[in-house]
């Protein structure tokens, strides 16, 4: 069998004046919203020949998240100044909210483009696309650390200390289900198939639930907190990082329980970020070894390609069409790569 191959072709880079915390692609892949750790919000425009960016906003003490509206023409940002801000596709300020003095740490547009979910302390709020409050859900028991929608945009999962809480969002009803796990949960990720819900914890475990039965399983053995995870497009693999290794749980066949995970080795220092291609099975990872690696788990055990960065990678985001990867670095470098199949 011939090993499939692909590489990452550089498609432009620029240096922003801030640590890159988060990146969000526009649906048409021509724009990116970029969050800076010191508080700047940038809008970058990408064309075949150029990549340019300008500062469009500020969040006092640090930007925490950016999220592009799936429907196209707007993006939201939040920061340590407690504000949630809505910009249009040209970077003009459209609306602003300040739900409380707390940080809004998570922003998640529903995939059906109906609403924006935000997590501010223990409070989850749902906003109409114009950033008008649609519904403030009852505060949860602990601070929400992450939000994740299922693919249809019907179920919203929130991670917190003590497990995950899923709201079924069918306004005016907001039905609640608890997935308890006594640990500080850091991520909330539905599989694209909506069959599984996974979380990574501060305690160094991955925990997931079979949504049809409610059965849950715990995957141990991580040396530290698991604060990043990504599902492959076919929902077969859940990728996580354990120091310099990439650990993939195989949900094919009988599932990952009791089996040894797939381990991909190649990074020589802690893997900081990872992301599966949307709708596909290519995986990109970024490590403290200042390297971005491209993998095709299950088909090849070594990296297909690697690109060196000039500082520690902090954020990796695929474009919604799975064609491009944007990488952010600690020193503010933003670089774009195109996934190119090699025959």
């Amino acid at each position: 069998m011939k090993t499939p191959n692909a590489i990452l072709e550089p498609r432009g880079e620029l240096k922003l004046d801030d640590y890159i915390v988060d990146i969000a692609w526009s649906t048409d892949t021509t724009r990116l919203a970029v969050a800076g750790g010191e508080g700047k919000v940038f809008l970058a425009k990408r064309s075949e020949s150029a990549l340019e960016a300008r500062e469009v906003g500020q969040h006092g003490m640090g930007t925490l998240a950016v999220a592009w509206r799936p429907g196209g023409s707007a993006f939201a940002s939040s920061g340590q100044d407690s504000r949630i801000t809505l910009f249009d596709a040209e970077g003009a300020l459209v609306a602003q909210q300040r739900p409380s003095m707390n940080w809004t740490t998570a922003l998640a547009w529903s995939p059906d483009d109906q609403r924006l979910a935000t997590a501010t302390g223990k409070q989850i709020s749902l906003w109409a696309p114009s950033l008008v409050l649609e519904h403030a859900l009852a505060p949860l028991a602990s601070t929400v650390t992450a939000l994740g929608w299922d693919k249809p945009g019907r179920d919203l999962a929130a991670a917190m200390n003590g497990g995950l809480v899923v709201h079924r969002v069918e306004p005016p009803r907001f039905q609640l289900r608890h997935y308890k796990w006594p640990a500080p949960c850091l991520t909330a990720a539905f599989s694209p198939s909506s069959r599984f819900l996974a979380t990574g914890t501060q305690d160094g475990t991955v925990h997931f639930w079979h949504l049809s039965t409610g059965r849950d399983s715990q995957m141990r053995g991580y040396p530290g907190r698991v604060d990043g995870m990504s599902w492959s497009g076919d929902s077969r693999y859940l990728a996580t990082a354990a120091d310099e290794q990439i650990v993939l749980w195989d949900f094919g066949g009988k599932g990952p329980e009791g089996s040894r995970p797939l381990q991909l080795r190649g990074h020589t220092d802690r893997v900081e970020c990872l992301a599966f291609q949307p709708g596909g099975n290519y995986l990109v990872t970024g490590g403290r070894d200042w390297r971005l690696s491209l993998w095709l788990p299950g088909k090849a055990t070594t990296a297909l390609d690697a690109q060196l960065t000039v500082a520690e990678p902090t954020c990796l985001r695929w474009s919604p069409d799975g064609r491009f990867v944007a990488a952010g670095e600690r020193n503010g470098r933003l670089s774009i790569y195109e996934l190119v199949r090699v025959v």
């Binding site: 006594p182 640990a183 501060q202």
Partner: peptide
């Protein structure tokens, strides 16, 4: 930076 005291038990 302000913090709201929140104590977690580890597992």
């Amino acid at each position: 930076i302000g913090a709201e005291e929140e104590i977690f038990e580890t597992n």
